[in-house]
Design a protein around this nucleic acid. Sequence first.
DNA 1: ATAGCGCCATACGCAAGCGTATGGACATAC
DNA 2: GTATGTCCATACGCTTGCGTATGGCGCTAT
Lengths: 197, 197
Amino acid sequence: MMATGQALTRRDWVKAALAALAEGGVEAVKVERLARSLSVSKGSFYWHFKDRGDLLAALLAFWQDELTAQLIERSADLPTPRQRLETLAQLSLEAESEGVNVAEAEGALRAWAAQDAAAGHGCRLVDQQRIDHVASELALAGLAPAEAELAARAIYLTLLGIYAARRYTPELAGDAPFRAIVAIVLDAAAQSSARAG
Amino acid sequence: MMATGQALTRRDWVKAALAALAEGGVEAVKVERLARSLSVSKGSFYWHFKDRGDLLAALLAFWQDELTAQLIERSADLPTPRQRLETLAQLSLEAESEGVNVAEAEGALRAWAAQDAAAGHGCRLVDQQRIDHVASELALAGLAPAEAELAARAIYLTLLGIYAARRYTPELAGDAPFRAIVAIVLDAAAQSSARAG
DNA sequence: ATAGCGCCATACGCAAGCGTATGGACATAC
DNA sequence: GTATGTCCATACGCTTGCGTATGGCGCTAT
């Protein structure tokens, strides 16, 4: 056991990697660079990880298993679909985890996914999962299944657009258009619901 | 003058760089890699360009000046704003230039813009220019200026989302949601126009 | 035909980054 | 108090990619 509490853990490296990813993309996630940022040497890294791919896989898993699930959970206990979706929209744009802006990391992840098969697979899974979730909420809000599916994809693509744009124009890609789209779709769902019942 | 017609020009290098960018991101735009793909050596490159930054600047300028303007021009001679915007939407998703899928290049450009100040600046300019153009068309279609601006940004963000998603999931990020959003906004504009007289 | 220029090949030095090998400090077990 | 295991430092070889230096080939002009 350690007494000083200064020893690094695998999770510390993953968190540092996430911060580097959010700021500079996958290409900024370098072993020696992270070591310097953690004030240790490469020797430490290669004790915790087999190689760089091992770290990247852990980073991807961390994002899939923790960051993503956490968002949905934090909006799950609200009463109406509209409230849940509006909160989810807000969290998607503002959430921070361990001092890292999640939106920045999301944008960098998509860029990574374009070049790496494993990252691409992870993004596809997460995207599908989130779109399904939004579509089911929209169906609860009153949209027909086909409309809900289409609207969910449109909303999610807009979110991805914000993730991409924010990385090079933080102020221009504000969240007003995103909120507007969510509101428009929810209003349409409400009307559809009113007509149906 | 050359007689054989085999000598490479600066533009050839830029086009090869664009193809590499579209396929593998900026990190795939390497001097020796491009040289191999063009069946020449680095000596050729450093005759045409000062350094790699010179090539990237030329690549950015090529995109800004030619690829971007070309889209708007090709939809300019249609009679109604609705037709122009629908054509523009179609071209944004399907256009090819010199055998390179423009949508792929656009996605890679945003990822590049997140890490490079010059690319970021170029993207900001092009984005603003395009958003202004769409907003003015929407205003012609009947939307109030503030609504047109908001709708234009929403539409454009969705397009950026498609650009990002297509790079790792070509089939899932179809254009149906994008067309749906454009249609919804145009219908709203038509109604607004009808109310206004 | 020869001098000059456009276009490219070859060969080098240099830096960054990965992975490995080896050793050392420090705590715990016994 | 010594042995063992945890966690990290240092040093090395290797590859990739950049930029430069230098030379060579073919065309053109005169």
